[in-house]
Design a protein around this nucleic acid. Structure first.
Lengths: 320, 320
DNA sequence: TTTCTTATACTCCAACCGAGTATTACACTA
DNA sequence: TAGTGTAATACTCGGTTGGAGTATAAGAAA
């Protein structure tokens, strides 16, 4: 029970997996490898000082991206993941950066996260594929429940996570929605058996059209976790600025938030909130290339990171 | 870079560490071992299906506690923690339960978490030891900063985390406060060098009086993480009920929340919030042993766990 | 009967937040 | 040069929430 040195017989391998996010031209993107079917990952080695140091090391070595903000997501070690009889612990991280040319190594490329979760983008209204494709299948899954209790339970989960029956859409339930679709058998990854060698060829869309592009292993689940965490975080912590260029207009900032949240925000209220919190300061310059009236350029006041510590900083993400 | 099976040369050992919390007679308590100087921990073994399964397994085997709620806290692998040259990954968990006689094995015992963090209990007003002991030492640490910038930075951190200069006390900054005291050298654990064999005898208070009882390694940091997480969580998720008996009065529930938060709440508002959210239902009985007017007994409506999923459920923890 | 303690009902007010209207400032074009 | 499109900015308004206070009711103990 004590924290004694562990014998070699319990030796284990540890993997670091990264969800690297950037927002470019209104698109929230994620760094992927292996023909856009996997998140970048690498082994945790003895040379690394700490987990976060290990992550920063190989991310910066391989992609030359300056990792602004890094946060641990989750650690898991389900038995079916590892190789023959060996446990692999996977420690996942969320990292924010600005999109770079993406150093060609390892065929890494940026991809919109909505191509993996097409039902998550509500910026142009609720995507029609929810009503047209997901809900009917989910309903038939719910109806196939063993007893009445199960069926009602399933219907309730569907209604809550997808905002049916007059309920509001909750953009933070990314993981719950993915797991629901997974349970309902609508996610190709669910069909894959335990042996981790049997991967789908990948590249093209999975077996079921309209449920987004699959990834290897449970990488899509990890991505969902990262999106959910980020969507929750931007509401009370000024992390958006890690994704912005040095100077920006308030509309650009708003578009970035909207891209992450997958929904629109009220422009005037957004500006009110940003300004009354003293998160930004004017650079004194304006940019004319907004199409309309030139917008003032702003710069993030890095000082607030020390001040607020962890509290404060709200962003308005409307419910209607 | 791919998630390939990792060779044995990067073999690593994994430990599970638990912060088990119960609230008894107005005291938030934590399960400890080794003369109250360590959190219970155990190796993650091949036999375990998953991390959480591993945790549940040995906690329930060794303590016979029914673990209601379990949540992952943090994973770390700093080099100075492990044995000679070997990395040890520590995965910490937060678990909620009701205090049991504590099966005597392994000299496990429950202990108020405020004996490790005496500055965190503000139920009877701000503890005098902050003003009397901590702040003077922190001030002299801040004043010893190399340049003016450092000094100002340190003073600001002190003011924010301890709520000086008219700032409000923020009960969620448990970890930040601990790390500040650690940096300032007021925490005995900070004095310990890298070699993990050199532990203080423990038991009695550490070298510096008034900074709480020390623990081995970084267990106190983990405990701080758990407290912070729990204090944040009770505000938007109905986890308090995992700590309550089957039936309870609203005052008991309030006392439990206050014990966790380390501060008092407004009674009328607390009740308003609890009731308008339909979190509880009357049992129909009352209990006369409250000293005053008999209180109605309530029961947690477990159904809400399915309904709210993760959203909703606020608890009022006042700022003044 | 007084007093203590707790439960419970009701009120008040300020802050916040979502939503809308109106106006201003520029670029482009006909 | 007038008109149009687009975006920036100012101002208003009403509902909800949440913190805090007052008042009353119901029992136990002295």
């Amino acid at each position: 029970m004590a924290a004694a040195p562990v014998a070699v017989r319990n030796a284990i391998a540890a993997d670091l997996i990264a969800v690297l996010v950037a927002v470019t031209s209104g698109d929230p993107r994620v760094l992927t490898i292996q023909d856009q079917c996997a998140l970048p990952s690498g082994p945790f080695e003895l040379a690394h000082r700490s987990l976060q140091a290990g992550l920063r090391a190989w991310v910066e070595r391989q992609t030359r991206l300056p990792l602004g903000y890094v946060e641990q997501l989750y650690t898991f070690a389900d038995r079916d993941r590892g190789g023959a009889g060996q446990h692999v612990i996977s420690i996942s991280y969320l990292g924010l950066t600005r999109e770079q040319p993406a150093s060609g190594e390892h065929e890494a490329s940026w991809r919109s996260w909505y191509s993996y979760f097409p039902w998550e983008d509500h910026r142009d209204g609720d995507p029609s594929m929810i009503e047209a494709e997901l809900l009917p299948r989910l309903e038939s899954w719910a109806g196939a429940g063993r007893d009445a209790g199960t069926r009602q339970d399933r219907r309730q989960r569907v209604a809550i996570t997808f905002g049916c029956d007059g309920r509001a859409w909750n953009e933070e339930l990314v993981l719950q929605r993915y797991e629901l679709l997974y349970e309902a058998g609508l996610i190709p990854e669910a069909a894959r058996g335990s042996p981790p060698g049997t991967l789908r060829p990948g590249g093209a869309a999975g077996p079921l059209p309209g449920t987004g592009q699959p990834m290897i292993l449970d990488h899509r689940r990890i991505l969902a976790t990262g999106i959910a965490r980020l969507r929750a975080k931007i509401k009370y912590h000024p992390v958006v600025f890690e994704l912005m260029p040095e100077t920006f207009t308030l509309l650009q900032l708003q578009r970035c938030v909207e891209a992450l949240a997958g929904r629109l925000v009220h422009k005037q209220n957004f500006r009110r909130l940003i300004e009354q919190q003293n998160l930004v300061e004017e650079t004194g310059e304006t940019t004319p290339d907004t199409g309309g009236r030139p917008a003032k350029l702003f710069r993030f006041r890095r000082e607030v990171l020390n001040q607020r510590a962890i509290s404060g900083t709200k962003l308005p993400i409307s419910r209607a």
